[in-house]
Design a protein around this nucleic acid. Structure first.
Lengths: 340, 340
DNA sequence: CTCACAGCAGTTCGCGCTAACCTATTTGCA
DNA sequence: TGCAAATAGGTTAGCGCGAACTGCTGTGAG
C-alpha cells in the first residue's frame, strides 16, 4: 500500500480505495448522514491505510464554517496570559472549537496586523485582551460579523461583549486596604505604562483614593524589560535609598513584588510592620515564596473560560441573547505582607 | 458606505466598488503582477472603504500554499517553551511564514490529535518538541510531505531533521562537575518522568556517570503538578528530613531548584559549602534570586530560531540540502551554589 | 511600416471539499 | 396490500480565490 508520487491525498484517493463515492467518504469522516456500518468500516479502513488527513481548507471553504477562535493577547511571558489560555482551552474542550493565539507585544500596530492575519482565516469568534484598540482594528472587528469578546477589563466601551474585572476598582480597593492598615508613606513600582492600559487604570484608581484620603504618593519607579524578579529587587533598592521613610510598597504585578519581597527579607526588614507590600494578580508562583505576598486575584482562568463559553454559545446559536458585560470581582488576599 | 446585509465581503465586492476585475483586485492586494498606479490606488481605496479582509482559506486552496508553520509543544507554563517560541517568531519575522501553536500536555494521544488537527490545515512545515512520538504521529509526519524539525533533543532518531542538545550529555556534564567539586551524598528531585523524555535522559546520563564514579544516588523525590516553586520547597524539606546527610541536590528544573534554594537560605544552610545545588535550564527568573543557582543553559531561543530557519529555507527552496542534525552545546553556569 | 515586446487587465478553470437535492431500496404499520 | 417514511448512497453545483493563459494597447528598433 505505497504511493508512487507524493501528491497529497484527497477524498478521491480514499473513495477509489474503498469503492464508494467521495461524498460517502466525506460523510463517514465527519460522522454525518446515514452510512451503513459495513461501508463505514470499509472507508475508515482505507483512510487509515493511506494515512489520509482531511483538508480543512477545502472543507472550510465549502461549508463556510471554520472551527477556530482567534485569541489575541499581548504576551506569553507574563504568566497571566497562559492562565487565561488555560481557561479558554478548558471551556472549548467539549465543543469542536479550537483556540488559535496571536501575540501583540502590547503594540497597537502589531495588534492590527495580527488581527488582520487572523480574520483572514475567517474564525468563528475573537477573544481579544483589553478594550483599547486602533480605529482600524475596531472597524475590522465590527465588519467581521462574528462574536467578539474583549477580556480582562470592563472599564470602557466594548465593541460587542466584555468579560473581566474593573482594574480601576482593583486599584481603589487596594488603596482602601492600605489606608485602613494605617500606612502613610506609600511608594509605587510598576511597568512603564503608556501601553499597558490595565496597569494604568489600577494606578489611577489607586492614586485617586489616596488623594481623597489626603495621601500623596511618596515615590514611584517604572521599568520595562528584563527579568521582572530582578527588576523588583533593583527598583526596591533604588527607592528605599532615595526615600528611606517609605512604609508601603505597591507593585503593579506580583513578579516584581516577589523580587522586592526577597530583597527586603534579606535586608532583615520587618514585614509588614516596618514596610508593607502588595502586588497584583495572585500568581501561582507566590506559593513558593518565604512569605505570602498580599495581592489581588484577577480571575484570569475564569475570565478565559467565560469568554470562551460566550463564543461557543453564540456559535451554536447566533440568536442567543447573552449579556454584553460580565464583571468579576477581584478579592484581596492579605497574605503576610499587609497589616490588618 | 454602509452595507445592508452582513454577508461577508469578497473580492467581487471590491472589484465592483472599484470598477475593475476580481483578478486585478487580487493582484493589487498581493502586490503581484503589473498594475498601473492609478488602478492600484483606486482598488486600495475601495478595499479600505469596505473594510475588506482577504479570505486566506480560498486563497490557500487556490494557490496550494499555506504560510503557516505548525509548532507542537508540551506546555506553555513551563517557561522553556515560551522562550523557544520567541526564537521561532524572531526567525520567522522576515519571512511570510507564521507560527501556529498546539499544546500536547506531554500526552502522546493529545499530541496525535493536535498534530492531526494541524496537518489538516496543510501547513508549510512542522516544528515539534522531542523525538518520541506515537507510531501514528510518525506516520502522519512522514506522509505529510513537508519539512519536519524535531527540537530540544538529539538523543534518538529523527523523522526528518533534529535541532537541540543532548540531554544525556547535559546530565553527564553536571554529574562530572558535582563529582569534581567533591560532593558525595547526592539527592535528585524532579518531575515524575514517564512522559518527560528529556528529563529522563538527563537523569540517566547523570546517574550513569555517578555510578561509574562509584556514587550511588543517596535519595530521590518526584512530583507532579502544583506550583513548581512550592514543590521545590516541599520536596527539599522532605528529603532533608529523611536523608539529613545529603550534601548536594540536583533538581530537574530551575523552578523547583529555586524553591529549594529559598528554603535552604531560610534554614540558614551554608550554600554551597554545606549543601550544593543545581538546576537545569537557565531561566531568566533566576536573576532575581538572592543567590545565583548553578544551572545549565538549554539553548532554548537558539533552538527555536534554528528550527524556524530550516523550515523557512526548505519552504523557499525544497531542494536545499541542509544538515539533518544540529546539536548545540549546553554550558554549565556555576552560579553561587556549586563549589569550584 | 512592421514586428517584437513590455505593460496592463480580463477570462477560464479548478483547488478539495460539503450543502442541498435526488434516487433507489427497504421497512413499518394501518 | 398499499403507501408514507426511513435508510443508504449518488449527483450537482458551488465556496472565494489564484495560476495560467489570452487579448489589447502603445512604444521603439530595424
Amino acid at each position: 500500500m505505497t504511493r508512487q508520487d507524493s501528491r497529497p491525498l484527497t477524498l478521491r484517493d480514499v473513495s477509489e480505495a474503498s469503492g464508494v463515492s467521495e461524498m460517502t467518504v466525506s460523510r463517514v469522516l465527519r460522522n454525518r448522514g446515514d452510512v451503513s456500518d459495513s461501508t463505514r468500516k470499509k472507508v475508515l479502513e482505507a483512510a487509515k491505510q493511506l494515512g489520509y488527513v482531511p483538508n480543512k481548507i477545502a472543507g472550510a471553504l465549502a461549508s463556510q464554517r471554520v472551527n477556530l477562535v482567534a485569541v489575541i493577547i499581548p504576551s506569553m511571558s507574563n504568566m497571566v496570559f497562559p492562565e487565561v489560555m488555560t481557561g479558554i482551552s478548558r471551556a472549548l474542550e467539549g465543543t469542536d472549537l479550537q483556540p488559535v493565539v496571536g501575540i501583540t507585544d502590547y503594540l497597537p500596530e502589531k495588534e492590527e496586523k495580527v488581527l488582520y492575519e487572523m480574520l483572514s482565516w475567517r474564525p468563528s469568534g475573537v477573544i481579544i485582551a483589553g478594550l483599547e484598540h486602533s480605529e482600524a482594528s475596531r472597524a475590522m472587528l465590527r465588519a467581521a460579523g462574528i462574536p467578539v469578546v474583549e477580556i480582562m477589563d470592563v472599564d470602557g466601551m466594548a465593541i460587542d461583549t466584555k468579560v473581566g474585572i474593573s482594574h480601576r476598582l482593583a486599584g481603589e480597593k487596594m488603596a482602601h486596604a492600605i489606608i485602613e492598615a494605617g500606612y502613610k508613606r506609600i511608594g509605587f513600582l510598576g511597568t512603564k505604562m503608556p501601553l499597558d492600559h490595565r496597569a494604568r487604570k489600577r494606578f489611577e484608581g489607586f492614586t485617586q483614593v489616596m488623594a481623597k484620603a489626603g495621601i500623596e504618593m511618596a515615590d514611584q519607579e517604572f521599568y520595562s524589560g528584563g527579568s521582572a524578579l530582578a527588576k523588583g529587587r533593583e527598583l526596591t533598592e533604588a527607592m528605599l535609598k532615595r526615600t528611606p521613610d517609605i512604609d508601603f510598597l505597591y507593585y503593579s504585578n506580583d513578579m516584581i513584588g516577589a523580587g522586592g519581597l526577597l530583597y527586603l527579607l534579606e535586608k532583615g526588614v520587618d514585614i509588614p510592620a516596618e514596610i508593607g507590600l502588595a502586588g497584583f494578580n495572585g500568581v501561582e508562583l507566590l506559593q513558593g515564596l518565604p512569605r505570602q505576598l498580599a495581592t489581588m486575584d484577577a480571575c484570569r482562568t475564569e475570565i478565559g473560560s467565560k469568554a470562551a463559553e460566550i463564543i461557543a454559545q453564540r456559535t451554536a446559536d447566533p440568536e442567543a441573547d447573552l449579556p454584553k458585560k460580565i464583571e468579576m470581582t477581584p478579592v484581596i488576599s492579605f497574605g503576610d505582607t499587609l497589616k490588618r
